[in-house]
């Protein structure tokens, strides 16, 4: 199969505000795909729909050949996700979090231990597996979440701002892990980030979303050529403007409505 992820005319409406306006794109198997956009552009809403957290108003999502809306469990088993916000059980140990994940993803009992060990070794947390997660630092928690997302051998890994709030050393090491996963296992990576330099360095393909529409996509070279700029950061600023965006997107009324949508979803 050529495309591990295929999105067709994806739309999400909240009340009378449309967060995502009929976007379509494909992610090639084995590639690293960066999904960029300013705050409130529809990025988070899109990733929530791709990972079956949020139901689209209309459109289609195909993951690993499964219709994510109709064959939800098959689609879910095909991807791993590292959410933007933490999602670990802090009252359990790292290892217990891994076991919990392995069980709910129906990893065969015989393989569990090996797979958990393998995943924890990749992110360098095997020696700390018996610690409670509440004793972990922010970077360790992130690495643990990445390891956890690997246990069920996903075909595609969604990373929603995986390096936000981390120091440069940790960020570097996380990207190294991610790159290795992509190169050695051929795992497709779908990521969002606000660090343009990181996207520039790692991504094969880039899509930029703003106001609910994809305004540019392709390889780094193509985007730079199309916009007549020298770096992704410049291209990004040229495409999306230099105004500072509100965290919830848009101004007064818009912000209020986005807030309602968020509350309903949560």
């Amino acid at each position: 199969m050529q495309n591990i992820l295929s999105v067709k005319s994806l739309t999400k409406k909240f009340e009378n505000f449309t967060a995502v306006k009929g976007i379509s794109f494909d992610v090639e198997t084995g590639s690293i795909f960066a999904f960029l956009g300013p705050n409130g552009a529809g990025k988070s809403t899109t990733i929530k729909m791709l990972t079956t957290v949020l139901k689209p108003t209309s459109g289609e999502i195909w993951i690993n050949g499964f219709n994510a809306l109709k064959e939800q469990d098959e689609a879910r088993a095909s991807f791993g996700i590292v959410f933007q916000d933490p999602s670990l059980d802090e009252e359990l140990t790292a290892y217990e979090n891994m076991v919990y994940h392995a069980v709910i993803y129906k990893v065969p009992r015989k393989e569990r231990e090996d797979r958990i060990r393998q995943a924890l070794e990749i992110v360098g947390l095997w020696d700390r597996r018996k610690d409670y997660v509440k004793k972990y630092s922010g970077g360790m928690k992130r690495r643990l979440e990445i390891a956890r997302a690997l246990v069920h051998y996903p075909k595609i890994l969604f990373l929603d701002e995986p390096t936000v709030g981390l120091d440069p050393q940790t960020r570097k090491s996380i990207w190294t892990h991610i790159k290795n996963l992509n190169e050695e296992r051929g795992m497709t990576i779908f990521l969002t980030t606000h660090y343009m330099d990181e996207a520039e360095e790692i991504a094969d393909e880039i899509a930029i979303i703003d106001h609910g529409k994809i305004i540019e996509s392709g390889t780094l070279e193509k985007i730079k050529a199309n916009t007549g700029t020298d770096s992704l950061e410049e291209a990004f600023l040229k495409l999306t403007g230099r105004d500072i965006r509100d965290e919830n997107g848009g101004g007064g009324k818009l912000k209020f409505m986005r807030g309602m949508g968020r509350r309903r979803r949560n």
Partner: peptide
């Protein structure tokens, strides 16, 4: 829900 763990469980194929 508040600590985010519910998400982990809800996106699992169960």
């Amino acid at each position: 829900r508040q600590f985010g763990f519910l998400k982990e469980t809800l996106v699992a194929p169960i």
